[in-house]
Write a protein that binds this DNA or RNA. Structure first.
Lengths: 155, 155
DNA sequence: CTTGTTTAGTGCGACATCGTACTATATAGA
DNA sequence: TCTATATAGTACGATGTCGCACTAAACAAG
C-alpha cells in the first residue's frame, strides 16, 4: 500500500498505518451507503445514538453519550437536539442533578430505529453472498481487540 | 453486540452490521487521535489527499480525487482549495481539457505529508507492543476483500 | 453558610460537508 | 459546421462539527 520512499515510518508501522487506512476506506464506503438509505435528513450519527439508546437503555445524559461516541459534548448536544426536534427523543430534567437532562426514547424513536435497520436490510442481504457472516466473524475478534486498546489508550 | 429484540435483521445480517459498527468505532477513535496530531487546521481529509498524491502521483483532477475518495465533487473541490491556500498544492490548467485543473504537489506539500507521518509515529510506536504488525496482517486480507466488494457494488 | 472549583449544557463563531444550480468547455451526431 | 448532451469546476445556501466562553448547578473546604 505504501512504498519504500516512506522514511518516516518503519515497516511494522507502515502495516499498522495501512490497516487504519483500509478501515477508514471501508468506513467511508459503508457510511455513504447507509446515509443514502436514511430519510428526513437523519444522519448516521443520529441513528447511532438512537441505536445506542435502544440497545443499552435510555435515560443517559448528553455528556455520557458524548464520551461513549468520543465526540465533543457540543457535537453530541447538537445531535441530541436534532433527535428531539424530530420527536425521536425527549429531554427530561434529572431529579438527581439539576444541571443534567436525561435523553429518553419516544415510541417514534424506537420505531424509527427499526425503520432504519429495515432500510439497511436489502444492502446486507446483497452483501452476504459475497461476504458471509463467517467471514465477518473471523475479523471481529481482532477488531474488537484493536478497539479496546484504542479505547483504553485515550484519557 | 445487538440483542435478540432486533427483528428487522436476521442473525447473519446482525453479524455483518456488528462488523460495520466495530469498524466505525475504530475509525472514529483513530481519526480523533490522528486529527489531534495535525497542525495549522489541517484535517485528516487534507492529509489523505496529500498522501494519495504522493503515493499514486499528482497531476490528478479534483473529479478524479472525488471519485477515489467517494465524496461529492463539491467537497473535494473545497478540500483541494484548502490545500492550495496552504501552499501544499498548485492548480495547473490542463492543456488537454480547458474545463479541468490538475492538482500538482509542491515541495511544501511533500514535506508536509512527511511531517504528518512523523507526527503519527509515536502513536504507532506506542500501539505496536499491544497490537503487532502480525495482528494487523491477519486482518488486512479480509478487510481488503470487503473493501473491494463495497467498492464494486457502488455505481 | 460561604466561597472556590468542578461539571452539564448552551450560545456563538469558524470551518467542513454536500445538494442544487450555474458556467465554461468538450464531444457526439446530423 | 451546428446543435444537443455530457462533463469539470464553482457559487451559494443549509446543515453538521467542534473549540471557546459562558451560565447554572453541584460539590468540597473551611
Amino acid at each position: 500500500m505504501t512504498n519504500s520512499s516512506d522514511e518516516a515510518l518503519t515497516p511494522e508501522q507502515k502495516i499498522l498505518f495501512g490497516l487504519f487506512n483500509e478501515i477508514g476506506i471501508i468506513e467511508q464506503l459503508s457510511r455513504t451507503l447507509f446515509q443514502a438509505r436514511l430519510e428526513d435528513g437523519l444522519t448516521v450519527q443520529h441513528f447511532s445514538v438512537l441505536n445506542h439508546l435502544v440497545r443499552l437503555g435510555d435515560g443517559k445524559t448528553s455528556k455520557y453519550l458524548a464520551e461513549a461516541f468520543q465526540v465533543p459534548k457540543t457535537s453530541m448536544s447538537h445531535t441530541v437536539q436534532g433527535l428531539e426536534k424530530r420527536g425521536l427523543v425527549t429531554l427530561e430534567p434529572n431529579p438527581k442533578d439539576g444541571r443534567a437532562k436525561l435523553v429518553m426514547l419516544t415510541e417514534a424513536g424506537r420505531a424509527k430505529r427499526e425503520d432504519c435497520m429495515a432500510a439497511l436490510r436489502p444492502d446486507l442481504e446483497a452483501l452476504l453472498p459475497h461476504f458471509s457472516d463467517t467471514d465477518a466473524a473471523h475479523l471481529l475478534p481482532g477488531l474488537g481487540r484493536l478497539r479496546k486498546i484504542l479505547d483504553e489508550s485515550r484519557d
